[in-house]
């Protein structure tokens, strides 16, 4: 019995090998390499992957992804895609900056596009996708300052790198702008604009840290927290879910977490969205049309690359007056009359 069982397994395996040859062929393939957050991080990598999926649906291209488990994987993952037939390789994240640069210079004919990294000087076969996230985060800071009961807000980041701290910059400056306009004294914990230091989990994958850091901020009086650390923030959302949204609200980042974190959607006041899906899909489309160009693609409030998500369940909780102010502020940021980066 035991024998025949394992023989059957063998047979299945052999059949599977035989079937392996028959897979459909696409003329265009877009490949994505994630950072250590993984493809299902509910935020950063997942949003970029959604861009690939959108392109798959609209343009009929093939899409593949490779997840990095550790920093040692970055070079290797990019390399293994160069062996394959990727028409464009999309690397997701600032931390892949050096690995992408190395691979791009070694393979000048391979188009690359990296999310969150701008090369100076530019590399001819790399298109950097960067985002003026501070514009949207400024709105979030203003909104949070207008909503807080305790007059204390909190934020923490994954790693102290520019694409993370730009959220925190905008958030703190938005709250400061509220103080300036209203003569209020809302305090933001977790990020110091001057010293460029603050609270960081030093990883993008530990949900437990997200919970602990949010707990610390809550203990210090914060009732609205902005975690800028990909999936780590899901841990913070769990805490908010347990405490109740009256005591702790979360502002999501990257994607509209109301839709991606459906189990805890009620804890999100809003999300600072970074439309990597739109820019990634755009890059795939231009490459498909043979119009790929190295350089920079900047997402702003104006072109919809960054934005503040709808309030969803909290629609009624946000006063109409504050909503109107946000609309006005948004217009002022776009026309430049309010500066988000002094």
């Amino acid at each position: 019995m035991r024998h025949s069982g394992s023989k059957m397994c063998f047979a299945a395996l052999v059949t599977a090998f035989g079937l392996a040859a028959a897979s459909p062929a696409f003329s265009f393939t877009a490949c994505q390499v994630t950072d250590t957050g993984g493809i299902d991080d509910n935020s950063f990598n997942q949003t970029a992957w959604k861009g690939v999926q959108d392109a798959q649906k609209e343009l009929g291209v093939d899409g593949r992804f490779l997840e990095s488990q550790a920093e040692t994987d970055y070079d290797a993952n990019i390399n293994s895609l160069i062996d394959g037939d990727c028409d464009v390789i999309i690397t997701v994240g600032f931390l892949l900056g050096d690995a992408t640069e190395k691979a791009a210079k070694a393979n000048p004919d391979q188009p690359f596009s990296i999310v969150d990294f701008a090369y100076d000087p530019i590399i001819p076969n790399v298109l950097g996708q960067v985002y003026a996230t501070d514009q949207a985060a400024f709105l979030a800071g203003y909104l949070a300052a207008g909503m807080t009961q305790t007059k204390i807000l909190g934020t923490f980041g994954g790693i102290n790198i520019p694409p993370v701290t730009i959220f925190m910059d905008g958030f703190v400056r938005g709250a400061n702008y509220w103080n300036e306009v209203k003569g209020d004294s809302v305090l933001v914990l977790g990020w110091d604009l001057e010293s460029r230091e603050g609270l960081f989990t030093n990883n993008f994958d530990n949900l437990d840290d997200g919970r602990a850091y949010a707990q610390n901020l809550y203990d210090e009086g914060a009732d609205i927290v902005l975690p800028v650390a990909g999936p780590v923030g899901l841990g913070s959302a769990t805490l908010a879910d347990e405490l109740g949204v009256d005591r702790l609200k979360i502002i999501g980042v990257d994607a509209d977490l109301y839709f991606t974190d459906t189990e805890r959607q009620h804890v999100y006041l809003t999300s600072v969205t970074k439309r990597m899906d739109a820019t990634v899909a755009h890059v795939i489309k231009t490459t498909l049309n043979g119009e790929f160009m190295g350089g920079l693609l900047v997402g702003t409030l104006d072109n919809g690359g960054v934005d503040l998500a709808p309030f969803h369940d909290m629609e009624d909780a946000v006063p109409d007056e504050l909503k109107a102010e946000l609309e006005a502020l948004r217009a002022h940021i776009i026309d430049g009359s309010v500066s988000v980066s002094d």
């Binding site: 397994c9 299945a12 599977a16 090998f17 392996a20």
Partner: peptide
């Protein structure tokens, strides 16, 4: 382990052709 791995893949909804592709 490979056989059991194939079983695990099959139970997570990976079809037979993909299991074959993956071992290749």
């Amino acid at each position: 382990a490979l056989i059991l791995g194939a079983v695990v893949m099959a139970t997570t909804g990976v079809d037979l052709a993909t299991i074959g592709t993956s071992y290749v």
